[in-house]
């Protein structure tokens, strides 16, 4: 094994973590500012110019907070649950390309950790399917009825919407005839962005991912009017911060995935000549999508729980199956489109 290669991987992994952590901090700031604007308030404006240092102040405050563990809680799982929650969110983007190949210090470097993995999409579904453990275990280990209800709701919701999400992946797979995320982006370079071919799939993907990350209007696991704060009711200090971190990192992650599968990923004008434009284009697309997620939060009320389940099973799932069928028929009828 070449040592340079190992070094390259380590640098990429550390960079990825740093980007996600900084992204987390400033997504919270963005959300508070945008929500405030939409509700005719100012939002954070005291720490630093225009409140730009607010995330830092929040982080310092949370580090110095006292950490409480309920007396009857299951200590081991109570401490492990935040860690189990944050790990999938940090590792899931390993298969997503952030750009093409760039030349740096005389080395050809691809801007992704494992973009060419031929089971890339399966990796994504595997990691999304285990994200729910952290929430369930946090709810159970707290030994609190509200936390428990939040955990149980999280399980039912994530399992229900995972099916539609998995089926929404199939459209891009069929069009690119590959499970490698890199190949899916390249295919969009040849045939145009996939949301043109996959309007239903794109909408299903957006709705299902909103439900997977428990954002409004699908934030049943932590509905504050019913469940205090849901599965993280008993958490404080850095453990609470880890849950918050997961929520915001997941927002970024689903925006990156939606951009990669349906909006051309890092592709854009002149990206062939100047490969460093790739991450810039991806950032712009992700920013727009994250803004959209925040906008949805400011606009829509929460689903009722039974409606949420009925919507997932009776509308989303049949539509997703129909979309797979239509995509298959489309590919057979117009074989010239696939390039």
């Amino acid at each position: 094994m070449e040592y340079g290669l190992i070094l390259e991987w380590i640098i990429k992994a550390v960079l990825m973590l740093l980007i996600l952590l900084i992204g987390f901090a400033y997504t919270t700031y963005l959300e508070r500012k945008v929500l405030a604007r939409m509700q005719v308030r100012y939002g954070p404006n005291r720490a630093g110019p225009k409140g730009l240092l607010q995330p830092v102040a929040d982080g310092v405050k949370l580090i110095f907070k006292e950490e409480l563990i309920p007396a009857k809680a299951d200590k081991l799982l109570f401490i492990l649950a935040p860690v189990i929650t944050v790990l999938p969110a940090l590792t899931i983007l390993a298969v997503v390309p952030f750009g093409g190949t760039v030349n740096l210090f005389g080395r050809e470097i691809t801007l992704s950790i494992a973009g060419d993995l031929n089971v890339g999409i399966l990796y994504l579904t595997a990691v999304t399917s285990i994200t729910v453990y952290g929430m369930v275990l946090a709810g159970w280990a707290s030994n609190n009825k509200y936390a428990m209800m939040g955990g149980i709701r999280a399980t039912a919701q994530v399992i229900s919407y995972e099916l539609a999400l998995g089926l929404a992946f199939i459209g891009p797979i069929l069009l690119a005839s590959s499970m490698s995320v890199n190949e899916i982006v390249n295919a969009q370079g040849r045939m145009g962005w996939f949301f043109i071919y996959q309007p239903i799939g794109f909408i299903i993907f957006l709705i299902a991912t909103l439900a997977e990350i428990n954002r409004v209007p699908f934030d049943m696991p932590e509905a504050e009017q019913e469940l205090v704060a849901g599965y993280h009711t008993e958490y404080s200090g850095m453990k609470f911060a880890l849950f918050m971190m997961t929520e915001y990192i997941k927002m970024i992650v689903v925006a990156v995935l939606a951009a990669t599968f349906f909006l051309g990923g890092y592709l854009g004008p002149f990206v062939d000549q100047v490969p460093w434009l790739g991450p810039v284009y991806l950032f712009i697309k992700v920013f727009i999508l994250v803004f959209g997620i925040i906008w949805v939060r400011a606009t829509w009320p929460r689903f009722r729980y039974d409606r949420l389940m009925a919507f997932g099973w009776k509308i989303m799932l049949p539509l997703a199956v129909l979309n797979v069928l239509l995509t298959g028929a489309f590919i057979i009828l117009f074989p010239g489109v696939i390039r």
């Binding site: 993995l117 031929n118 089971v119 399966l122 990796y123 579904t125 595997a126 999304t128 399917s129 285990i130 729910v132 453990y133 369930v136 709810g139 159970w140 428990m148 955990g151 149980i152 399980t155 039912a156 994530v158 399992i159 995972e162």
Partner: peptide, 26 residues
């Protein structure tokens, strides 16, 4: 065998065991 490995995680660890935990807690 990467396919079977990731299918194992998705199906068994991700779906079946989550349902088990759900039933145990419920």
């Amino acid at each position: 065998a990467p396919f079977i490995a990731l299918a194992q995680i998705t199906v068994y660890a991700g779906a079946i065991m989550v349902l088990f935990l759900f039933v145990i807690m419920l």
